[in-house]
Lab assay of single mutants.
Amino acid sequence: SASLEDVKTAVLGLLVILQTKLYTLPASHATRVYEMLVSHIQLHYKHSYTLPIASSIRLQAFDFLLLLRADSLHRLGLPNKDGVVRFSPYCVCDYMEPERGSEKKTSGPLSPPTGPPGPAPAGPAVRLGSVPYSLLFRVLLQCLKQESDWKVLKLVLGRLPESLRYKVLIFTSPCSVDQLCSALCSMLSGPKTLERLRGAPEGF
């Protein structure tokens, strides 16, 4: 439990870093931090981490990651405290083949985003970082199938509809809506759902 406290501190630090690096160059920093966060949550489900502190780590990670939004130009952003989304000039939600690297070039400044813009690109060529939603999407499927803490599952179920409104997140990387529907149906009809959940409301 003591070591998990250190892990929790590290994860919180990564969330803060991602919130900053999403809007700064090099964009590969945001890509790497995002991948680290998603990989860490995957390990929770792989090794069945069920301690309360592990659940709190997942809760905080999902609470942040499910706020990711994308505009029509595929640029990622996060809402501010007033709910207004600021889109990044440097990070996009497109999935890119590994051989192309985590970044790609664009020939010049991008068109203005639909929300308040981030800082304008400084040079004639900007390297865009790929932060594909499919990585998070796979972890969300694991959550629906394996999550043991009701608070975490409730958060994910509550945030998913709003995330799905931003269709560009889903359609720019390999996210299977069929698998999502299947996971939701299995969660509702499967007898093991109630068996594994802690803290579920009576009558769920």
Score class of each variant (00 low, 15 high):
residue 1 S to A: 11
residue 3 S to D: 10
residue 6 D to N: 01
residue 6 D to E: 05
residue 6 D to Y: 06
residue 7 V to F: 01
residue 7 V to W: 01
residue 7 V to N: 02
residue 8 K to Q: 09
residue 8 K to A: 11
residue 9 T to N: 06
residue 10 A to E: 01
residue 10 A to F: 00
residue 11 V to Q: 02
residue 13 G to F: 00
residue 14 L to P: 01
residue 14 L to T: 07
residue 15 L to A: 11
residue 16 V to D: 15
residue 17 I to T: 06
residue 18 L to M: 12
residue 19 Q to D: 06
residue 19 Q to C: 05
residue 20 T to E: 10
residue 20 T to K: 09
residue 21 K to Y: 00
residue 22 L to N: 02
residue 24 T to G: 07
residue 24 T to L: 11
residue 25 L to G: 15
residue 26 P to I: 00
residue 26 P to Q: 04
residue 27 A to T: 11
residue 28 S to P: 05
residue 29 H to S: 05
residue 29 H to V: 02
residue 29 H to E: 06
residue 30 A to E: 01
residue 32 R to C: 04
residue 32 R to T: 05
residue 33 V to Y: 00
residue 35 E to A: 12
residue 37 L to Y: 00
residue 37 L to C: 08
residue 37 L to R: 02
residue 38 V to C: 09
residue 39 S to I: 06
residue 39 S to H: 14
residue 40 H to L: 00
residue 41 I to K: 00
residue 42 Q to K: 11
residue 43 L to D: 10
residue 43 L to C: 15
residue 44 H to W: 00
residue 46 K to H: 12
residue 46 K to D: 13
residue 47 H to W: 08
residue 47 H to Y: 10
residue 47 H to D: 13
residue 47 H to G: 08
residue 48 S to R: 13
residue 48 S to C: 11
residue 48 S to D: 14
residue 49 Y to P: 02
residue 49 Y to A: 03
residue 50 T to P: 04
residue 50 T to N: 13
residue 53 I to R: 01
residue 54 A to G: 04
residue 56 S to A: 13
residue 56 S to F: 13
residue 56 S to Y: 11
residue 57 I to L: 09
residue 58 R to W: 00
residue 67 L to E: 13
residue 67 L to G: 14
residue 67 L to F: 10
residue 68 L to T: 05
residue 69 R to K: 07
residue 69 R to V: 04
residue 69 R to A: 04
residue 70 A to P: 09
residue 70 A to Q: 02
residue 72 S to Q: 09
residue 73 L to I: 08
residue 73 L to S: 10
residue 73 L to W: 13
residue 73 L to D: 08
residue 75 R to A: 04
residue 76 L to Y: 06
residue 76 L to K: 02
residue 76 L to I: 15
residue 77 G to N: 02
residue 78 L to A: 09
residue 78 L to W: 07
residue 80 N to I: 07
residue 81 K to W: 12
residue 81 K to G: 15
residue 83 G to Y: 04
residue 84 V to M: 12
residue 84 V to S: 15
residue 84 V to Y: 12
residue 85 V to E: 05
residue 86 R to I: 08
residue 86 R to F: 07
residue 87 F to W: 08
residue 87 F to D: 03
residue 87 F to S: 05
residue 88 S to K: 02
residue 88 S to M: 02
residue 89 P to I: 04
residue 91 C to P: 02
residue 91 C to L: 13
residue 92 V to T: 13
residue 92 V to Q: 06
residue 93 C to T: 07
residue 94 D to P: 04
residue 95 Y to W: 13
residue 95 Y to D: 14
residue 95 Y to M: 09
residue 96 M to S: 10
residue 96 M to K: 10
residue 97 E to W: 08
residue 97 E to H: 10
residue 97 E to I: 08
residue 99 E to G: 13
residue 99 E to C: 12
residue 99 E to P: 15
residue 99 E to F: 14
residue 99 E to R: 13
residue 101 G to R: 12
residue 102 S to G: 14
residue 102 S to P: 14
residue 102 S to Q: 13
residue 102 S to M: 14
residue 103 E to D: 15
residue 103 E to P: 12
residue 103 E to K: 13
residue 104 K to R: 14
residue 104 K to F: 11
residue 106 T to A: 14
residue 109 P to V: 13
residue 109 P to H: 13
residue 111 S to P: 11
residue 111 S to C: 15
residue 113 P to D: 15
residue 114 T to E: 15
residue 114 T to W: 14
residue 114 T to V: 15
residue 115 G to Q: 14
residue 116 P to R: 13
residue 116 P to M: 14
residue 117 P to R: 15
residue 118 G to Q: 15
residue 118 G to C: 12
residue 125 A to R: 15
residue 125 A to T: 12
residue 127 R to T: 15
residue 129 G to R: 07
residue 130 S to Q: 10
residue 130 S to E: 07
residue 130 S to I: 14
residue 131 V to M: 15
residue 133 Y to A: 04
residue 134 S to C: 13
residue 135 L to T: 12
residue 135 L to D: 13
residue 137 F to A: 03
residue 137 F to T: 04
residue 138 R to E: 15
residue 139 V to H: 02
residue 139 V to E: 05
residue 141 L to E: 05
residue 141 L to P: 01
residue 142 Q to W: 07
residue 144 L to F: 06
residue 144 L to D: 00
residue 144 L to R: 00
residue 145 K to V: 11
residue 146 Q to E: 14
residue 147 E to H: 00
residue 148 S to P: 07
residue 148 S to V: 10
residue 148 S to G: 13
residue 149 D to N: 07
residue 150 W to L: 04
residue 150 W to R: 01
residue 151 K to P: 14
residue 151 K to A: 14
residue 153 L to I: 07
residue 155 L to V: 13
residue 155 L to D: 04
residue 156 V to M: 02
residue 156 V to E: 00
residue 157 L to H: 00
residue 160 L to R: 00
residue 160 L to G: 01
residue 162 E to N: 09
residue 163 S to K: 08
residue 164 L to T: 01
residue 166 Y to R: 05
residue 166 Y to H: 11
residue 168 V to R: 10
residue 168 V to W: 05
residue 169 L to H: 05
residue 169 L to S: 04
residue 170 I to L: 09
residue 172 T to R: 04
residue 173 S to W: 02
residue 173 S to P: 03
residue 174 P to N: 10
residue 175 C to Y: 04
residue 175 C to V: 05
residue 177 V to Y: 04
residue 177 V to I: 09
residue 178 D to M: 05
residue 181 C to D: 00
residue 181 C to I: 06
residue 181 C to H: 04
residue 183 A to L: 11
residue 184 L to I: 08
residue 185 C to P: 01
residue 187 M to H: 01
residue 188 L to V: 08
residue 188 L to N: 01
residue 188 L to Y: 05
residue 189 S to I: 15
residue 189 S to V: 10
residue 189 S to M: 13
residue 189 S to Q: 12
residue 189 S to T: 14
residue 190 G to R: 10
residue 190 G to L: 09
residue 191 P to F: 09
residue 192 K to A: 15
residue 193 T to L: 09
residue 195 E to I: 08
residue 197 L to F: 14
residue 198 R to L: 07
residue 198 R to I: 10
residue 199 G to W: 08
residue 200 A to R: 11
residue 200 A to M: 12
residue 201 P to K: 08
residue 202 E to F: 09
residue 202 E to P: 12
residue 203 G to F: 05
residue 203 G to V: 05
residue 203 G to W: 05
